[in-house]
Amino acid sequence: MKLNIGCITEAGLSKKNRTGYWRYFFPIVDKEKCNGCGICELFCPDSCIQIKDKKCVVNGYYCKGCGICARECPRAALTMQPGGEEAE
């Protein structure tokens, strides 16, 4: 691999950065409790939550495991647990 001086690279690389590997805990969604309100989606600092079919879906490639979503969920539908899928 070649290193460009000054870490100068093409722009828009945050899409490629796999922040998921920083993670230790991952938010597991309890689909029974989740009503798709989208609060977790708003609060996630890495924009890695999407609401699909009125349920929270977390992107394991980017989720860094900070736990903010679980803390903010008003229905306690998210539980932080070790692991999580890394696939996008």
Partner: peptide, 12 residues
């Protein structure tokens, strides 16, 4: 556009 000083982990 270019990124200057992009995010780099401890491997580099």
């Amino acid at each position: 556009p270019l990124t200057y000083g992009s995010l780099t982990d401890d491997d580099k």
